[in-house]
Design a protein around this nucleic acid. Structure first.
Length: 299
DNA sequence: CCACAGGACGGCT
DNA sequence: AGCCGTCCTGTG
């Protein structure tokens, strides 16, 4: 049983396995490639391996069996249930959204296996600051480099993995250090945000008990967090708010194509798009956005 | 070599 | 309040 030293406490990492069957709404490609996460990689045998806060996890699906195994701190069943949002009924959500209109019905059919992950709030914050004006391969590369340099090493099946460093582990990282990892102009934002958290100018944990708009205003105080990044953090982290609507170029495109039909999509304001989304999709607008985004981007 | 893709931010009106 | 140029790197 290997021991690791992490963030000031000893953790016991254990090799564990967990299998579930007949889980509704669970397709690996849909979950890991719909743009919500950056640390999952497809393996040759079609399984995915990811580093989550608790360690290394592998997920494989054959037929109706989903097999989770990995090197984890904590009980694998609890970790998987929380991380993959297994206690939420996605069939019910999809049914509600499918009845809104045919566009939504089609995009849900396309991304039927999506689940919105409960990702670590701090890691999600830093990851989406990096995502600004950036593409997924490069975002993944930068996060990997940060983890390798400042995270904890975990060895599993003869391979080395690196956890995402906590704020304390990034305390002495300079702006230039961030720049050297290929973060570009985001270097100062990563530095400032790390110290806003360390100096307790912004309290991420408190946001779990705040209403969405209050938490959003708090997130916007962070350097490098604007409206789109804030909404992604609210939707894809343990904050898990569906009453937000992150608008990037793809969402703008799909919303204009389906609902607005303006000849120049760049001329439609975010405010206007958000209003339409809220009127059409209501409190489920966040997850509606994800189905539409994934469908538009893949198809 | 140049054009383009992708959000936050600050300076401007 | 809204508009626009700039920030950096990878790709075609």
């Amino acid at each position: 049983m290997p021991l690791y030293f992490m963030g000031g406490m000893d953790l016991i990492m254990k090799e564990q396995k967990y299998i579930i069957e007949n889980q509704e709404s669970f397709e690996l490609k849909d979950i890991f490639e719909c743009g919500q996460c950056f640390r999952w990689n497809k393996q040759n045998d079609k399984s995915y391996i990811g580093v989550i806060k608790n360690g290394v996890l592998s997920v494989k699906k054959d037929d109706e069996k989903i097999i989770f195994c990995g090197m984890l701190n904590g009980n694998i069943k609890n970790i998987v249930e929380e991380y993959f949002d297994l206690n939420r009924n996605y069939d019910e959500i999809k049914d509600k959204l499918s009845h809104i209109d045919q566009y939504l019905k089609n995009s849900i059919e396309y991304g039927r296996g999506i689940r919105i992950l409960n990702q670590d709030l701090w890691e999600t914050t830093i990851s989406f600051i990096i995502s600004a004006n950036n593409n997924i391969p490069r975002i993944k590369g930068i996060i990997e480099k940060i983890a390798k340099k400042y995270g904890n090493e975990i060895e599993w099946n003869g391979k080395k993995y690196y956890t995402f460093p906590n704020a304390e582990q990034l305390k002495n990282v300079s702006v230039q250090d961030f720049r050297d990892l290929g973060t570009g102009f985001r270097d100062i934002r990563l530095f400032e945000t790390t110290h806003l958290i360390l100096d307790k100018k912004v309290d991420l944990e408190k946001m779990h008990t705040e209403d969405t708009l209050t938490a959003r205003d708090e997130l916007l105080k962070l350097s490098g967090v604007g409206p789109k990044v804030a909404d992604c953090i609210l939707l894809f982290s343990t904050l898990k708010r569906f009453d937000v609507f992150p608008i990037d170029v793809w969402v703008r495109r799909v919303m204009n194509e389906l609902y607005i039909k303006n000849e120049d999509e760049t001329k439609v304001s975010k405010k206007e798009i958000m209003k339409i989304a809220n009127e059409k999709f209501g409190a489920l607008e966040g997850i509606a956005q994800q189905y539409l985004f994934y469908w538009k981007r893949e198809a």
